[in-house]
Write a protein that binds this DNA or RNA. Structure first.
Lengths: 216, 216
DNA sequence: CACATCTTTTGAACATGTTCAAATAAGGTC
DNA sequence: GACCTTATTTGAACATGTTCAAAAGATGTG
């Protein structure tokens, strides 16, 4: 029966994510997950080949949550700056339950060979979804043609920087990260709008060309 | 005898760094280090409380090497773009022997509670030294006054981004990273020089203000 | 020298992520 | 139903970073 297997797999995931939220990543051992799910350690590994794969699901869910919240919020505001703000705040909102363990998460999320690393093969689908959020943010606004195609990915990259900042942010409720978003979003919007001007345009074009060149 | 103890400690470090270079971070186990150094596992831990502390020394040495090479090189060139290029290339040069294991290194280098994390308390001294490289790079050039103080740290931050890019760079000899540096350095220099212009100046000022605000 | 204190060394022990061969259950075929 | 194949489960085993209490050595004091 396929559904039996699927059910067990779902239970492992559910248990794991719940424990990640309540105990943190490091303290949630594979043995504890298996015990809580009522199966053996080996069985847990039968469904998820590594602890990283479980984290990938976490990443997937948080992006989905971010996207839903951002989409809803964007129906209300039309300025590029505000839409970027919304997208980024929604992301941090979705991650907030994990901030206490953010450090332990990132240590498993950044190594290139990890399934969770946001730039890697395994997370391609999730990354696409995340970039899509910024594609939505850009859609409503007037963007110079030469920037339009690349902008969503650039915004996602900037957002990755924000997340890194957030991981290290020990201020109460990560207020500094919120301040960063509130300040950076309008600045980015301004830069985009200025990118039409004769002084700025060549600079931006050069940067875009470099990005393309370096991605090959 | 103090020097006996110091000698043992030095031997552990020397052995560890050598093995990091030849075997990589993951494959260099604490047991292997101890064995190679001719002491017991417990003794190794007596001198270095964790594997991370060994990596911190690696970080320290690589920055020292980077600084030496950059300083020497900068005597020849005076343009800001060229000096930034030199500083960054020197850094990547120093890191190159570890690229094969870059991934494993970064996984231990980024968690906030790690001794190695470049933004943390434990690595403050090394970070200061690293920022100093960019302070040198800036010293020779004409920089707008309102930018002068903050620029070195900003350049270091940009360099951290380059290092992250390098970690994921699988092109032959990390050519893409070199291309990135060669393209980004003149661009940064141009941006700095343009920051005097009436259109660009308020943008840059706003960004600097945000940085200050967010650091508090 | 005898003793006390501090430094260094040791090896066993622990927890954890991961692997694996073997056992068991399920499903399909004759 | 008997048999074969595939899916699932299990528990033991392994490697590794780290901890720790106890032993051994060094140093200073009377």
């Amino acid at each position: 029966m396929d559904s039996k297997s699927a059910h067990t797999k779902a239970k492992v995931l559910e248990t794991a994510l719940g424990m990640f939220r309540s105990k943190g990543f490091a303290k949630t051992t594979m043995r504890a997950i298996a015990a809580e799910a009522g199966i053996s350690l080996g069985s847990a590994y039968y469904y998820y080949a590594s602890k990283d794969e479980l984290v990938l699901e976490l990443y997937r869910e948080s992006v989905a949550e971010q996207r839903a919240a951002a989409s809803t919020g964007m129906r209300g505001s039309s300025g590029l700056g505000d839409r970027i703000k919304l997208a980024m705040h929604a992301g941090i909102d979705a991650l907030t339950p994990y901030h206490g363990f953010g450090g332990t998460f990132i240590s498993s999320a950044l190594p290139p060979q990890s399934a969770v690393n946001p730039f890697g093969e395994a997370s391609a689908e999730v990354r696409e979804n995340a970039i899509g959020i910024f594609r939505e943010a850009v859609e409503g606004a007037k963007i110079p043609a030469f920037l339009r195609a690349q902008l969503p990915e650039l915004l996602w990259l900037a957002y990755m920087g924000v997340v890194l900042f957030w991981v290290y942010d020990h201020s109460a409720n990560q207020r500094r990260t919120r301040t960063l978003i509130d300040g950076a979003a309008p600045l980015i919007a301004k830069l985009v709008s200025f990118s039409r001007l004769p002084v700025v345009k060549p600079l931006v074009e050069e940067a875009l060309a470099l990005k393309t060149k370096v991605q090959a």
